[in-house]
Computed example of a mutant assay.
Amino acid sequence: MADQAAPARNPSSPFASARGHHVAVRVPDYAEAKGWYTEKLDFRVLAEWTWAGLELAYLAPPNDDDFYVELFGGGNPDPGTYYTNVIDSLERPSYHHFALHVDSVDDALAELDRRGVTIFGRPFDLKEINSRLALIGDPWGNMIELSERLG
């Protein structure tokens, strides 16, 4: 982070072992969502199962086994709000996005554009967190941030 000192770690916290693991994404069509994440983002299917009448899976990025997207598919979920730009998405309190770190936001966007992925505007630099950022959307309006560390 630019010009911001991180608070000291707290190894005595009862939550000191906590680490990010996964984010769950609710989609109406499991097969279509699994196809989108594996074809557009090259995610890998690590596990699949059923629960409460839904189809679920853990998907992992192409070269990362420490973070997963958990798909919850099937049934008849409320379609919610499908955003077409980031600014409108800031008006509603709820889950907003999950982020993936990439080596080059611009290169990733060029490939995602070639693959027909929805891109929400041009990438931008946010010096306060030393990052170049862009947001994309899956077919159900779930937003995914791409993040690249600056310099």
Rank of each mutant, 00 (worst) to 15 (best):
M1K: 07
D3Q: 09
D3I: 07
A5C: 06
A6T: 11
S12T: 11
S13R: 14
S13A: 15
R19M: 03
H22C: 11
H22V: 05
V23M: 10
V23Y: 06
V23W: 02
A24K: 10
D29A: 13
D29R: 08
Y30G: 08
Y30L: 01
E32F: 08
A33Y: 00
A33S: 13
G35K: 12
T38M: 02
E39R: 09
D42K: 12
D42I: 03
F43D: 00
V45M: 05
A47C: 14
T50S: 03
T50V: 12
T50H: 03
W51M: 12
A52Y: 08
E55G: 04
A57T: 05
L59H: 03
L59T: 01
A60V: 13
P61H: 13
N63G: 05
D64Y: 12
D66R: 15
Y68W: 15
E70R: 11
L71W: 02
F72R: 09
N76G: 09
P77I: 08
P77M: 13
D78I: 00
P79E: 06
P79I: 01
P79Q: 07
P79A: 12
G80W: 05
T81W: 08
Y82N: 00
Y82K: 14
Y83I: 00
T84R: 07
T84L: 07
S89C: 06
S89P: 06
L90C: 00
L90I: 04
R92V: 11
R92Y: 09
P93Q: 04
P93D: 04
P93Y: 02
S94G: 10
S94V: 03
S94D: 10
H96I: 06
H97P: 05
A99K: 00
L100I: 06
L100W: 10
L100F: 06
V102N: 08
V102K: 07
D103W: 02
D103R: 08
V105A: 02
D106S: 04
D106V: 12
D106A: 07
D106Q: 13
D107E: 15
D107C: 10
A110R: 14
E111V: 09
E111H: 07
L112Q: 03
L112W: 13
L112A: 03
L112R: 02
D113I: 13
R114V: 04
R114P: 02
R115F: 05
T118C: 06
R122I: 03
F124A: 10
K127P: 04
I129D: 01
I129L: 10
R132N: 04
R132W: 04
L133K: 04
L133N: 09
A134E: 01
L135F: 15
I136T: 07
G137K: 01
G137R: 00
P139T: 01
W140H: 03
W140T: 00
M143H: 08
I144P: 03
I144L: 12
E145W: 01
E145P: 15
L146D: 05
S147E: 14
S147W: 01
E148F: 02
E148N: 03
L150F: 00
G151N: 14
G151R: 12
